[in-house]
Amino acid sequence: MESSIKSSKIDLDIYNLIEKMRKGDRRAVARLITKVENGGPEVSKQIIKEIYPETGKSFIIGITGSPGSGKSTLTNQIASEYLKKGLKISIIAVDPTSPFSGGALLGDRIRMKSNFTNKNLFIRSMANRGKLGGLAMATKEAIHIFDAYGSDIIIVETVGVGQSEIDIFKSAHTTLVIMPPGMGDEIQAIKAGITEITDIFVVNKMDRNEADKRVNELETMLDIAENIVVDQKNHNIRIIKSNKWRPPVIKTNAISGENVPELIELIESHREFSKTTGLKNKKLAYRYKHYVVDIIQYFQNKDIERLIFSNPKINEFIDQILSYKTGSDPYSISEMILELFSKRYFS
């Protein structure tokens, strides 16, 4: 039985869309993203295989922050600055899917209205569809599509809850964490890991009194973080973090645009730093390692499912379970199957 990952067929429909995208057709770009959102890795595979050689050129900025931090407005300002330089910008705005209904409300476009009709800007709203890690696999594929489409900059903007920060880090070259001033104790609530993934801290809404206080808190936290031992959970992050880059803290006002040009300068200097120190390549290696893990997990799960449900041999194992004897419990049987499985795949 051939593993589904090996098939290299491509639907004509998908191929045509890619051809159109190559000619700059924006609707084709949009439809390709819909395909990776709805079709799962079986569809994504066809697309990524075809476009991969055309990717690797975009600069990817991750932006995260708690709801109400003003990150969408700031994203719009950053995009505006880059648009002024004549660059092609794509934005992926990720919002959470409701765990109750499976639906989602995606309201980020409204804050980007001033740039709506600029043809150099492409905004795509995505629901994370409840996948672990906030940034769904589809987002990573959408990044590749925007990359192949020829975006100079891709901004991935997502709500800052838990795992998604780590996910942004996996996908972005430069990660911004946005914080509003004076929301009380949330700085304590931020996991130690945040300093590890952040390249630039932005304290937005600088017109508020508490902005300076928040900047000081962050600086203090960074001072401490430089000396602490790595958190076990995040050890894999630490390995690739260069000690030389201390995340700068900058105040902005996303509504008025104050300090946004200065923020762009910081982003650019981090970009330069990453390139010269090799950080960029480390990050890329990290990103693709995880991407590969995601892909393998997906297809292996599918293979396992197929094995369990269609392989007649399995029925013998199931019969053993049904005997209710010592050593025939579902765990012991699964261990035996897994052993056979590893032999097939990894020996």
Partner: peptide, 15 residues
Amino acid sequence: SRGLRDAGLEVIYTG
């Protein structure tokens, strides 16, 4: 918008 969300749809609100 909210009702459609609660019915399981993904809703993009443009303002």
